[in-house]
Simulated assay, not measured.
Amino acid sequence: MESEARSEEAQELLLFLSRWRPIQEAAMLVVLLNRRDGLSHLSPLRRMLHRQPYLSDMTRVVVQRGPAAVVEYVKALSVVNEDRGEAVRACRMTAVDLDVDDVAQTVKALRAAEFGTEADNVIRVAGKDPQAIGRIVPLAGALWSAGMDADADRLLEMVTGNSPEQALELAGEMLALGRHMKAFELYLKAAAVIAHRPASESVRILSAMDEAGHGDLAEPSCELSSRPLSRRQTFSGSVRNCQPRAWRTGC
């Protein structure tokens, strides 16, 4: 019982330091406690904490201090630690734990500080981690608002690259946000899926293009078949007679 109490007290102290002390001190503590060699005077503290996820908790507390803290933490770790494992952990926590506006600002700050690899890691986690995947559209919007268009595009490319179905789903959300050109780019990626949907879906998408002021992209490149489409006929069934220019040339 006494050992457990000491362990809890030690962890509370470390979390307090991570929350209130300068970021550089928190980074140094994480590095020292993570070392396996030397500094034998820290061994009792390591043994006291060996069952606690104290390193993860310390990093999470730092990340929760916001974008500027994340950048300072990554910078400090890069100076004192050759092992980038804790920086990678911080990037993952940034993508999962912070709200999307703070994630976008962190990516922007990391790139400004020339930590491009870490910024890429945040985007990669945001696009692939199951805990972050539900925030793709809001995060893309936050990145656009922060002027990080390339990162927003990279995020969407990562999510939709090998999934026409995901591209179709996100295209609808982009359209609802007023991001018409991005929506149409995603619709193009989903052409193989749309081709097997009822023709009414293609008509809906092309109509949306026209309503958004991009009717030239929606004009057919050849004459429509004189035979009317049945209710269940798919776009692929009429593709020989009409291929929308958008499917062929892009937006």
Score class of each variant (00 low, 15 high):
residue 96 V to C: 13
residue 239 V to D: 01
residue 99 D to S: 11
residue 5 A to I: 12
residue 62 V to I: 14
residue 79 V to P: 00
residue 221 S to Y: 01
residue 216 D to S: 12
residue 240 R to A: 12
residue 14 L to A: 09
residue 20 W to L: 12
residue 106 T to V: 10
residue 150 A to R: 11
residue 236 S to D: 14
residue 94 T to S: 11
residue 182 K to A: 08
residue 62 V to G: 08
residue 106 T to R: 07
residue 181 M to Q: 14
residue 178 G to P: 00
residue 191 A to T: 11
residue 68 A to Y: 02
residue 105 Q to P: 00
residue 192 A to I: 10
residue 87 A to K: 07
residue 75 K to P: 00
residue 213 G to Y: 08
residue 231 R to D: 07
residue 230 S to V: 04
residue 150 A to M: 05
residue 89 R to K: 14
residue 66 G to N: 04
residue 20 W to I: 09
residue 163 S to Y: 01
residue 97 D to K: 06
residue 7 S to G: 13
residue 178 G to I: 01
residue 128 K to N: 14
residue 106 T to W: 08
residue 141 G to L: 13
residue 224 L to R: 10
residue 182 K to D: 09
residue 117 T to W: 10
residue 138 P to I: 04
residue 50 H to T: 09
residue 164 P to D: 00
residue 116 G to Q: 07
residue 222 C to P: 00
residue 188 L to R: 13
residue 21 R to G: 10
residue 96 V to Y: 08
residue 175 L to Q: 08
residue 82 E to A: 13
residue 241 N to P: 00
residue 140 A to P: 00
residue 220 P to K: 01
residue 21 R to V: 12
residue 205 I to S: 01
residue 25 E to D: 14
residue 78 S to G: 12
residue 158 M to L: 15
residue 55 L to Y: 01
residue 100 V to P: 04
residue 172 G to W: 14
residue 241 N to L: 05
residue 127 G to N: 07
residue 62 V to L: 05
residue 33 L to G: 15
residue 132 A to M: 03
residue 218 A to E: 02
residue 156 L to G: 00
residue 214 H to I: 02
residue 93 M to E: 15
residue 219 E to L: 15
residue 76 A to M: 07
residue 66 G to D: 06
residue 242 C to F: 04
residue 235 F to V: 07
residue 106 T to L: 09
residue 54 Y to S: 08
residue 153 D to Q: 14
residue 102 D to A: 15
residue 148 M to T: 01
residue 131 Q to T: 02
residue 53 P to C: 03
residue 139 L to C: 03
residue 93 M to Q: 15
residue 139 L to E: 05
residue 61 V to L: 04
residue 179 R to W: 04
residue 54 Y to C: 10
